[in-house]
């Protein structure tokens, strides 16, 4: 599973992308976040306040209940501020 990070999520994690292989019981975005928090202090800090974190699965905005599977591209980022 390919993870992408943008804006301050990228800075807090310390990288723009990474490949991860979460355990098979990780089936949703929320479960993925819970697992990622345990992976390093940087992940824990970046996901500390999930009210500030948004997600896209395969380039579509996705909520916490959205399914994630091996091979997906999952992006995490703050609320968007374009325009």
């Amino acid at each position: 599973m390919k993870l992408l990070y943008f804006a301050w999520m990228r800075q807090k994690i310390g990288r723009a992308e990474e490949e991860v292989a979460p355990p098979p019981d990780v089936a949703t975005v929320a479960q993925l976040v819970a697992w990622l928090r345990t992976q390093s202090p940087a992940h824990e800090a970046a996901f500390a306040d999930t009210r500030l974190v948004r997600c896209a699965v395969n380039q579509d905005f996705a909520g916490p209940d959205a399914p994630v599977r091996m091979g997906d591209e999952v992006a995490f980022f703050p609320p968007v501020t374009g325009g």
Binding site: F6, A7, W8, A56, F61, A75, F77, P78, P79, V80, T81, G82, G83
Partner: peptide, 23 residues
């Protein structure tokens, strides 16, 4: 809709440093 539905993020530079613009 562009402001809230497209994946762009603004980062400002000032004399005090840099900060991400909050939604």
């Amino acid at each position: 809709w562009l402001k809230t539905g497209a994946p762009f993020w603004k980062h400002e530079e000032t004399e005090a440093g840099g900060r991400w613009v909050e939604a």
